[in-house]
């Protein structure tokens, strides 16, 4: 593995340099009391490295909440809307759970029939990861998302006087080489410090999700009354899907112009929690109850996605717990399913 060490006091300079490569996106605070959110960096001083979780994950840059697909006109039919797809971007400060989640989206959007909108954005975006400290909601270690060995161009682990940089790609290496005066070679002491930090972080997880045999247990609990009772608590707002880094469902909308001759077709984030999600023309709803829809979401993360793609559909980022207005907690629901706690 290629490594380097970035001096702490050189970070701002490094970020400024990145802005010359492309649009720099990084976690910043929204307002004085707002959440952290990925947004375009104007001033490197505003970039926050010790954030816990952004409200929206990385997917907003690859699968935007509203994504223009086509313009149409009677004369020319549907024409692909391709502008913006070639924009060079660097996302700085991504946690391993979010990097891991992006790999899940890759499986869906780059596999089978590759999605050209997603593929182009992915191709033109560099990712720079950063180490993090779990809070009481994080359970990424339970689903194998606490550490990634691929899927980034650079990954920075904060040590006392700077950042231990793992170089994950040739493009990442270029970023280091272009500003090599900001880096030095990694020493044995750095490696020792890296290992100490890694161990300390691993021991700091307070939340755990037992995943052994989970798909099988869920299968057996498909008809459980837990779904209906938890469904009564769910507000059906779909907020969990919006903030989830691995939720990718979308609906497609057609918006004509007033001339009746032209318009646009775009897609927008959808959620299996919405009543309309499974309604076919004519009105039949395949999941009429809120509990069935909540079950769909949790099944997809912990049974259906793993069965289809061979890896967890959840990265343990804790967002769905942190932002659910009804206070629903997936780790608690799964413990209930396992019979570890009584509702």
């Amino acid at each position: 593995m290629q490594t380097a060490f970035l001096f702490r006091e050189k970070l701002g300079q490094f970020l400024a340099g990145l802005r010359r490569v492309g649009t720099l996106l990084a976690p910043q605070r929204r307002g004085k009391e707002g959440h952290h959110a990925f947004s375009e960096v104007e001033d490197p001083q505003e970039v926050v490295l010790d954030y816990t979780r952004t409200l929206l994950p990385l997917k907003k840059y690859f699968l935007p909440p509203q994504d223009l697909l086509f313009r149409f006109s009677v004369a020319e039919g549907y024409q692909m809307a391709a502008e913006g797809l070639a924009e060079k971007r660097i996302v700085f400060g991504v946690h391993s759970c979010d990097l891991r989640a992006l790999q899940n989206l890759d499986l869906v959007f780059l596999g089978g029939y590759p999605d050209p909108y997603y593929a182009a954005r992915r191709e033109n975006t560099l990712l720079i990861g950063v180490s993090c400290t779990p809070d009481e909601l994080c359970f990424c270690a339970s689903v194998g998302a606490d550490s990634v060995t691929e899927g980034y161009d650079l990954f920075l682990t904060e040590l006392e006087d700077g950042y231990f940089v793992e170089i994950g790609s040739s493009a990442g290496n270029d970023l280091v080489q272009e500003q090599k005066e900001l880096f030095r070679e990694v020493t044995d002491e750095d490696v020792a410090a890296f290992k100490r930090r890694f161990k300390a972080r691993h021991q700091s997880f307070r939340r755990h999700l037992e995943t052994s045999g989970l798909p099988r247990i869920m299968s057996l609990e498909h008809a459980s009354s837990i779904w209906a009772s938890r469904g009564e608590e769910c507000l059906g707002c779909g907020g969990c899907s919006m903030v989830c880094p691995t939720c990718y469902c979308f609906s497609v909308a057609e918006v004509p112009n007033l001339d009746g001759q032209s318009g646009v077709r775009y897609r927008q984030w959808d959620s299996c929690l919405f009543k309309d999600y499974s309604v076919v023309a004519g009105g039949h709803n395949f999941r009429p109850q809120r509990g069935e829809r909540l079950r769909q979401r949790i099944f997809h993360k912990h049974k259906d996605f793993p069965e289809r793609y061979g890896r967890s559909g959840c990265v343990g980022c804790g967002r769905c717990i942190a932002f659910c207005p009804a206070g629903l907690d997936v780790t608690e629901i799964i413990r209930q399913l396992r019979g570890e706690i009584i509702a």
Binding site: H35, L55, L56, G238, G239, M242, V243
Partner: peptide, 8 residues
């Protein structure tokens, strides 16, 4: 709420 989450 849905749009409020998207608005971060």
């Amino acid at each position: 709420c849905t749009e409020c989450r998207i608005a971060e």
